[in-house]
Simulated assay, not measured.
Amino acid sequence: MTKDLTSSPLERQNILNNRYALEKIEEHLGLGGTYYDGELLFTKQQLVEIFGISESTIEKYLASHSDELRANGYTVLRGRKLREFKALTDGNVTDYGTKTTVLGVFTFRATLNLAMVLVESDLARAIRSRILDIVIDAIAERTGGHTKYINQRDCNYVPAAYQEFNYRKTFTDALDHYLDLGNFKYGIYTNRIYQIVFREQAQEYKQILNLSKKDSPRETMYAEVLKAIASLENGLAAEMKTASEKQGRKLTKVEVDTIFSASEDNPYLKPIIEDARVKMASRDLGFRDALHQKLEAYVQSVPESDFDKFLGEASHSLEEQLADPTLLAVFKRLKDR
């Protein structure tokens, strides 16, 4: 998917929230700057020289992208902080004629943010191209080159998958016992579950994620999506059982369809389904470069906490997790319930 960082605040923030990629970008670009209080800082004058632009151009972007640049680290130094910073730079700083009272500075993150929106600079254009390459390399390095199963690096994935497996059995048993329909009912109502949770049938989902015929969609789903599916499966199984016992017979397709339709507006399920849609749509675009068009309205920037969850030190491959005795203890507790 082609990405134009100059026009997409979401794509910009997905990169700027990825501290693992930022570390690689800082190492590769070597823009200079001054370290102060744990941050690499750049003055406006330094960015004028780096990008080959005018001071007024920087001021223009500070006005047009004020909230974004400030959220990503642009700040104004005053008082003690300004004195300490000036001491580190041998006093060689100015800020549009204001020498000693205030100084606008950009963190490295804010500097990248400026490079992503700056259209007047050839260097900024080259940096944007390099950034995209480095981000791809950083994610590949962290995941062993495989984002198909990046969902499984979340420590919550395995318990959620095991839980959903159990509720899936409850759901298919309910279809077996309470619905008067042929065996094709399992595929029909599995797709109905998917459509309620994330508005796609299984085949649509597989196409978006470029999965093969042998790939199981559920093995690529995030823990939050699996929990939403499990909640829906468990609730629908209970509803079918109650309705069937009340009628004293198996239910017709029309009657089960009515139960499914009512579940779409269930106020108890709405928060968990909304959360699952946001997580799936946002993470798949940010990590897998996959856009779920039917969930496009739910796409948000991937938060920094998610990069830690799927790329950080606490994240592990499925094989590593299954070798953890702590996880095995969790399995035992779930099994004994």
Rank of each mutant, 00 (worst) to 15 (best):
A138T: 14
Y149I: 00
S129Q: 14
Y157Q: 03
L114P: 04
T107P: 02
A140R: 15
F108W: 03
N92D: 14
R128S: 07
L118C: 06
C155A: 11
D95V: 05
T98R: 12
A124M: 04
C155Q: 02
A138Q: 08
S129H: 12
C155K: 05
T147I: 01
F108Q: 04
V105A: 09
F108S: 05
R130E: 15
N166M: 14
P159C: 13
A161H: 10
Y149S: 01
G144D: 11
V158D: 03
Q163L: 15
N113L: 07
T98L: 13
M116V: 01
N113D: 08
T94E: 13
R128G: 08
N166P: 01
L118T: 06
Y157S: 01
G144F: 10
I134D: 07
P159E: 02
I127G: 05
Q152K: 11
Q152P: 00
L114R: 05
Q152Y: 00
D133M: 10
Y149W: 07
F108D: 04
N92Q: 15
F106C: 05
I134W: 06
T101G: 09
G104A: 11
T111R: 02
Y162R: 13
D154G: 01
V102N: 14
A160R: 01
E141Q: 14
V93A: 10
E141L: 10
I139R: 12
D122T: 05
G144Y: 12
G144H: 12
F165A: 15
L123K: 12
L112Q: 03
E141I: 06
G145L: 06
N92E: 14
I150G: 02
T98I: 14
Y162K: 12
S121D: 08
L132N: 07
K99V: 09
N166H: 14
R153C: 01
E141K: 14
A140M: 11
L114M: 08
A124N: 06
L118W: 00
T98C: 09
V102L: 05
H146M: 01
V135R: 11
Q152D: 00
V117C: 01
T147Y: 02
I131R: 09
F106D: 04
Q163Y: 13
I150P: 03
L132K: 11
V135W: 03
R109V: 06
A138D: 11
L112V: 05
N151H: 03
N151Y: 00
S129M: 09
L103A: 09
